[in-house]
Design a protein around this nucleic acid. Structure first.
Length: 798
RNA sequence: GGGCAAGUGGUGGAAUGGCAUACACGAAGGACUUAAAAUCCUUUGGCCGCAAGGCCGUGAGGGUUCAACUCCCUCCUUGCCCACCA
């Protein structure tokens, strides 16, 4: 039994005292920057963190042993609501709570033996960091990328703060899940939409990102090509623009629908007999939450406005409705309804007995009668009832009709985007103050660069209610206008914490740099991040914002690359009995208690062995025992070393070096460990010599570093094993003298032959045909064909 | 409704056109021990058979191939993400 507690403490101290993992520019060495998504300091690390950081640590240590100059930093995403909530609850201060949490988490992270360069540690709540948030904000403001806008914003009544669209999940607050309300406020936005084309285009560069993350980003940016069509109001010059991606169905538009919030609705019903009913309907819909309106099973409601408009392609007079299934936020807030080719329109038209016309012929149906439809036909087909476009395939017609409409000036080809500007204002204390001053004379005035940072006051009244706590601190709000020197009021909103995490990876290159967010010389060497690792929950927001900031820095001339993260790995969740570990379920396994029972090396080994990094991992304490048993099995090898290497074992050793090296490089840690276990099993069979054992220790070192450092030292080596180089295999040792050839008859395995590896096909044929196990299957039958795959198999077809 | 994954022994998983179930867990048996733990050894997909051996078997069905967990088509199930997006 090895004494994991003593060994782990000993080597953690050694790494710290000898600054083993402190990184510095070395132009002679190839750099490797490995980064995991930094944690929010909630107080304790959980198994998700352990898994994330263990994966990254093996990558870092493996690359280091291979001779790369590795940067592997760690920091804390320290601003945010929980600190403030804790302050409210405990009548304390957010910074005290946060620093306590950070200290505690650092202890736990160090116990895991991660190879961090702690000299680069950063926390986003330090003014030395958030000063640069403010600097970046001002640079964006100068370029018109930060602007103030009044808008209906998502308001969480529980946190009494606004939320970005992206932070609203199923109509609820992303943290507390309270139903989100709509509220009008003056807010700061970042114009991420200005970068949408590049954010979309550059996704193509990201060859080493998981496909699904690319797909999610794609959908989120949501570029759709379509046509804006101008419907003229009957007996008026007023134009109602309508956006469609299915312009091929325009000849089948039998009515149009305006969103109830559409400003035209009230205008056009004025004085009409329907006015009262329409206004009542608008009133009713305004009370519905977006949630209710988006439910699929809720019946689509709507009313006729009494007005008509003209379909510009055939001058048909069609009715105008308003209905709750049309959303003001998307497109133009108005749609053309084609009941035959859109299922929502179909259900609505059936309900309200509106006319229909088939314009895309379903190749699988004879009928041309819309009354016989049981649902809308949304697939491809041939144009009918579409004037001069009849007979074209609808995909062809889409382009032809769009071009024709643009020529006739009755429509315009348009691009629509789903991505909105990013709302960053928060009515919260524990965040970066937005560096702006509101002067009664000069209006909005930026804080001069030399006055940065705008520091958070030490104290503020925390009630959790009302607007920004900063608004109640007079020393903070009262300030002289930088322009006219008259009394002005400081902006009291703080920035969303996603701002902080959108560039921290650059700050790690030079965490103490005083003149800019980062030292260009350091950034040029270390960036971009070679391997980024984190949870899939950040697949959209955090990664999109980080990509946006990176492009912005490039435009400022500070860096010369487009994308911050070359390779991305999204690790799977850690489950317990098939369920997500969570406080509410009460099924949390505390890493700390596991470390004291088995040691960090065993925990690292188990968590990597139990499943591939990307898939879910079901926690199983029995598996921990197995992992621990394996380490003890390795430990005992040293008691019984032979002086001469067994030639059989030597071949297995070299194959293992290759397998483990390849598997580490491909993040296939579970099979790498399986390979090491096979090697250990072989050692127990053949007996190991010193060299074989040393190589085993080196191969295992990235996964169980303390354990291997100790054995490495006991073998008489000096210095850290992480600087000792990576074992190389001899390609000649991978080739066996003999190979096993599989003999198949009609695809079924009937025999196996052990033969010299360079044997001729003729010889194998001869051996196979007179093989005792093969004979009965081919006797008296005509051989049609024989397929020979060298070194693998011979397949006889009869 | 759309997109992306995935579905393999009692369990976690391995194999990405060429011996299905590597490695581990669990289970059963044995050695050592006064005993237990630890350790070591053996067995462990199903069915038939004393055995040799045979047949079946990777969610279901079909296809391509000498050969399919792997490629193609249809479907089912689960997970994740998106969604009255026009």
């Amino acid at each position: 039994m090895y004494e994991f507690k003593l060994i782990e403490e000993k080597w953690q101290k050694y790494w710290q005292d000898h600054k083993v993992f402190e990184a510095a520019i070395d132009p002679k060495k190839k750099k490797y920057y490995v980064l995991e998504m930094f944690p929010y300091p909630s107080g304790k690390i959980h198994m998700g963190h352990v898994r994330n950081y263990t994966i990254a640590d093996v990558a870092a240590r493996f690359k280091m042993m291979q001779g790369f100059n590795v940067l592997h930093p760690m920091g804390f995403d320290a601003f945010g609501q929980p600190a403030e909530n804790a302050a409210i609850k405990n009548n304390s201060k957010p910074d005290i709570w946060t620093h306590k949490c950070i200290d505690w988490m650092k202890i736990e992270l160090k116990k895991m033996g991660f190879s961090y360069d702690w000299s680069r540690e950063l926390s986003t709540c330090e003014s030395g960091y958030y000063k640069w948030n403010q600097w970046i904000f001002l640079k964006m403001y100068e370029r018109g990328l930060a602007y103030k806008g009044k808008a209906g914003v998502n308001w969480c009544p529980s946190c009494s703060t606004t939320l970005a669209n992206e932070e609203v999940i199923d109509g609820g607050c992303w943290r507390c899940h309270t139903q989100v309300e709509q509220k009008d406020l003056e807010q700061w936005y970042l114009k991420i939409t200005e970068y949408r084309e590049r954010l979309l285009e550059d996704l193509k560069q990201l060859k080493n990102w998981p496909e699904r993350v690319i797909a999610m980003q794609n959908n989120w940016i949501g570029k759709s090509l379509g046509v804006e069509i101008y419907f003229r109001l009957d007996n008026s010059d007023k134009i109602i623009p309508v956006f469609t991606t299915r312009v091929d169905t325009i000849f089948g538009a039998t009515y149009i629908v305006l969103a109830p919030e559409h400003p035209l609705v009230k205008e056009i019903v004025k004085g009409k007999p329907q006015e009262k009913e329409v206004l009542k309907f608008i009133e009713k819909v305004s009370k519905e939450t977006k949630q209710v309106r988006s439910k699929d099973d809720v019946k689509k409601e709507g009313v006729f406005t009494g007005c008509f408009c003209i379909n510009p392609v055939n001058n048909e007079k069609i009715p105008i409705w308003t209905a709750d299934y049309v959303l003001m936020e998307y497109g133009t807030g108005a749609i053309m309804a084609v009941p035959t080719h859109d299922q929502r329109d179909f259900l609505f038209a059936k309900e309200h007995k509106l006319p229909m016309r088939i314009v895309i012929k379903n190749p699988g149906s004879e009928s041309n009668n819309p009354d016989e439809l049981v649902e809308a036909y949304e697939d491809d087909g041939i144009q009918v009832n579409s004037g001069k476009f009849d007979g074209l395939s609808n995909s062809e017609a889409k382009i032809k009709i769009a071009e024709w409409m643009e020529k006739e000036k009755i429509g315009k080809i348009q691009t629509h985007w789903r991505l909105r500007d990013w709302l960053i204002s928060r009515q919260r204390f524990w965040g970066t103050p937005i560096p702006m001053i509101n002067c009664p004379k000069c209006g909005t005035v930026p804080v001069p660069y030399e006055d940065l940072p705008v520091k958070l006051p030490n104290d503020a009244p925390f009630t959790g209610e009302g607007g920004s706590p900063l608004g109640k601190v007079k020393e903070f709000t009262d300030v002289k206008c930088p322009k006219c020197k008259s009394l002005a009021r400081r902006e009291t909103d703080t920035m969303a914490t996603f701002f902080d995490s959108s560039w921290y990876f650059l700050r790690f290159a030079s965490p103490d740099f005083k003149k800019a967010p980062f030292d260009q010389k350091e950034a040029r060497y270390w960036m971009p991040v070679d391997q980024y690792i984190g949870g899939i929950e950040h697949a959209i927001l955090h990664l999109l914002y980080s990509r946006f900031f990176t492009k912005f820095f490039k435009d400022l001339g500070l860096i010369d690359f487009d994308e911050p993260f070359l390779q991305l790995l999204t690790q799977g969740m850690v489950l317990k009995d098939g369920e997500v570990m969570s406080k509410s379920r009460g099924n949390i396994v505390d890493p700390d208690s596991i470390i004291s029972k088995y040691g960090a090396d065993t925990l690292r080994l188990f968590i990597l062995f139990a499943a591939p990094p990307e898939t879910e991992l079901d926690w199983d304490e029995k598996g921990m025992e197995g992992a621990h048993r394996f380490l003890n099995r390795v430990w005992r090898i040293q008691e019984n070393l032979k002086s001469i290497a067994d030639p059989q074992l030597l071949r297995i050793l070299h194959k293992t070096i290759k397998k483990v090296s390849d598997d580490y490089a491909g993040f296939k840690f579970n099979t790498a460990i399986a390979g090491l276990m096979e090697l250990v099993n072989a050692i127990y069979q053949y007996g190991a010599d010193r060299n074989t054992f040393s190589i085993l220790i080196l191969l295992l070192a990235p996964i169980a570093p303390h354990f291997c450092e100790e054995l490495w030292q006991q073998m008489g080596n000096k210095g850290s094993i992480s600087k000792s180089g990576w074992p190389q295999y001899d390609p000649k040792m991978l080739i066996d003298d003999t190979v096993t050839i599989i003999i198949q008859v009609n695809g079924k395995v009937r025999s196996k032959l052990d033969v010299p590896q360079d044997i001729s096909e003729k010889k194998v044929r001869e051996m196979a045909l007179c093989d005792d196990k093969v004979k009965p299957w081919i006797e008296g039958k005509a051989i049609k064909n024989i397929i020979f795959v060298p070194k693998k198999l011979l397949s006889i077809v009869i």
